[in-house]
C-alpha cells in the first residue's frame, strides 16, 4: 500500500490508461449491476410490503426502500459484483502478465510496471466503483418504483419526494465513502494478488480466486466500520 501511494504521486499520471481502465471496469460490470440493482430494489419492496401493510403503513415503502438502498444495498451489491467481476479480472490479468514475464519485460524496457499497471487500475477502480454504486442505487429505486406504482399506483413525483424525505447528506456522504473504500480495496487486492502471482497458470487461478475472496472479506469488515462511524455522527 505504501508503494502505491509513493508511486501514485511520483512523476506524471498515466491519464490515458486510467481512462481506459475506468471504461473497462464500467463496461464489465454495467449489465450485471443494472440487472441486480433493479431486481434488488423490486424484491426488497415486494418483501417489505406485507410487514408495513400490517400497520397500514404501505405509504412508507418509498422511504423504507430508499433508506435501505442508499444506506446499504447499493454499495454492497455493487461492491460484491465488482469484487467478482473486476477483482478477479485484475488478479487474472496481472497474474498472467507476471507468469509470462510481461511485467519483467516492462521493467527491462525501463518502464515502471507498478505505475503503469497497478496505480492505473487502483485509481480507476476507486473512481469507477462509486459511480457504479450511484447508478446501482438509481436503478434499485427504479425497481422499487415500478413495484410501488403497480401495487399502490403511486406517481413518480410522489415516489421521489417520499423516497428522499428521509435521506440526509450524511447518508449520501457515507455511501460515497463506502464506494471509494470498496473500489480502492477491490483494485489494490486484485493488483496485489496478480502482481505477486507465482507458479505458472496455477498461480494465475489462485490470484483471481484470492482477489475475490479477500476483497469480499475486507468489504464486509469495512462496511461494519463505516456504518459504526456514520452512526456516531447520526443524531
Amino acid at each position: 500500500m505504501g508503494k502505491f501511494f509513493r508511486e501514485a504521486f511520483k512523476g506524471r499520471m498515466e491519464v490515458q490508461e486510467i481512462i481506459k481502465q475506468c471504461y473497462a471496469i464500467g463496461n464489465k460490470s454495467l449489465v450485471l449491476i443494472s440487472l441486480t440493482g433493479f431486481i434488488t430494489g423490486m424484491v426488497f419492496t415486494k418483501q417489505s410490503r406485507p410487514s408495513l401493510a400490517e400497520f397500514g403503513a404501505t405509504s412508507w415503502l418509498p422511504s423504507l426502500v430508499s433508506i435501505a438502498v442508499i444506506r446499504a444495498l447499493a454499495a454492497l451489491v455493487t461492491a460484491l459484483i465488482s469484487a467478482g467481476k473486476v477483482g478477479s479480472s485484475i488478479g487474472a490479468e496481472l497474474g498472467s502478465m507476471r507468469v509470462t514475464e510481461q511485467i519483467d519485460a516492462m521493467e527491462v524496457s525501463a518502464i515502471n510496471p507498478f505505475k503503469y499497471l497497478v496505480v492505473t487500475r487502483v485509481v480507476a477502480a476507486t473512481i469507477t466503483i462509486p459511480v457504479l454504486m450511484s447508478y446501482c442505487g438509481m436503478v434499485g429505486l427504479m425497481g422499487a418504483y415500478l413495484n410501488v406504482a403497480l401495487n399502490e399506483g403511486t406517481s413518480l413525483q410522489t415516489f421521489i419526494q417520499k423516497a428522499f424525505e428521509q435521506i440526509t447528506f450524511l447518508d449520501i456522504g457515507t455511501s460515497l465513502v463506502k464506494g471509494i473504500a470498496y473500489g480502492f480495496t477491490i483494485g489494490i487486492v486484485g493488483c496485489y494478488q496478480g502482481y505477486n502471482a507465482k507458479k505458472g497458470t496455477e498461480g494465475v487461478g489462485r490470484a483471481a480466486n484470492s482477489s475475490v475472496v479477500i476483497s469480499m472479506f475486507l468489504i464486509f469488515i469495512e462496511e461494519v466500520i463505516i456504518v459504526q462511524i456514520s452512526n456516531y455522527f447520526r443524531v
Binding site: 502478465m97 509470462t100 514475464e101 510481461q102 519483467d104 519485460a105 521493467e107 527491462v108 524496457s109 525501463a110
Partner: peptide
C-alpha cells in the same frame, strides 16, 4: 538502473510480448 536498462536489450525465452 532505468538509465542502464535503456542500454540493454533483453530477449525473453517466451518472448514476453504484451498480448
Amino acid at each position: 538502473l532505468r538509465d542502464l536498462r535503456l542500454k540493454i536489450g533483453f530477449s525473453f525465452q517466451n518472448s514476453a510480448l504484451y498480448d
